[in-house]
Design a protein around this nucleic acid. Structure first.
Lengths: 158, 158
DNA sequence: TATTGTTATACTCTATAACTATA
DNA sequence: TATAGTTATAGAGTATAACAATA
């Protein structure tokens, strides 16, 4: 969707409008790019989280990012069908399905990270390093000031 | 959703990540604010477009923004149910339903615009005017360079 | 034949609640 | 009783295609 769609038709030069417009463009472009490795952004995110916490349960992994258990089932199902993730029984608690990356999962993740890096470059193509730094700093300032992020917006599941 | 959700878990300081994060925050916040006048962003957008082209047909209004006729029906239905918009017969062509704002529609639109302005301020609270100007300029540069906007991304209906 | 608006239908993404098997 | 995972179900939000009235 365009920024307009989310913001109504207010003047296109407002900061709010520009932020939505550019942010949505960045998200959409990334979704397009990451599809090259048969992933979508939520799956790529979960793959990253599993990599960072291998052996954890589904719910433990979904917990910190407001993904409810039923959604975790669906996401891990998809990763498993693609052969990227394994559910292993946990000998300590037979209710738990501990998550591990497969070899293929690691390779997809690595490729996904390359794509993310390329996306970053694509998005900032034509900008000077100074401008990139400026923009990053200003956006980071907004994130801090608006208290965007971790746990602040409970509705923002994914 | 958080920026993470769209971008996976790559380093939170990348520009792509920040842009998604902030852009989505801006969109979400606006959706929350505009709900105060019993609108959502798509309805507010259509309301603006009707105001800018009163008397036009549904499809004429949906055309420029990639909203298909069937969706226009649903959107105008909602606006009509809220008493904000009227469908009037067009004496020149009896297939056409010309769209007009009601008095209440004008008042909701005005109130919505106030909310949009307040949202703009809220979003940039704590920023200096110089920073706002810098940020606007940099984002505008990205929009130009990435060719974001009108007609460029056909998939971006709304 | 083409066009406006409409309806029917379906698809994606997501959440809530009920269920099962364990604990 | 409580918890991990699962299933069933439902709700946004959206699109495509068939359709009726009119041109």
């Amino acid at each position: 969707m365009t920024g307009e769609s989310l913001n109504g038709d207010r003047a296109p030069s407002t900061l709010a409008f520009l932020l939505s417009q550019v942010g949505i463009h960045a998200s959409r472009l990334f979704a397009e790019r990451i599809a090259e490795v048969d992933l979508n952004p939520p799956l790529f995110r979960i793959l990253n989280l599993i990599d960072a916490a291998e052996g954890q349960s589904q719910q433990a992994i979904g917990e910190g990012i407001q993904v409810p258990p039923s959604r975790m089932v669906a996401l891990v199902d998809e990763l498993e069908q693609r052969g990227l993730v394994e559910r292993r029984p946990d000998p300590k608690d037979r209710r738990v399905r501990a998550l591990y990356l497969t070899r293929k999962g690691r390779s997809s993740l690595a490729r996904g990270r390359e794509i993310a890096a390329a996306h970053e470059e694509e998005l900032t193509a034509g900008m000077s390093d100074a401008d990139r730094a400026r923009l990053t700093k200003l956006l980071q300032k907004m994130v801090d000031q608006q208290a965007i992020g971790r746990g602040v917006h409970p509705g923002l599941s994914n």
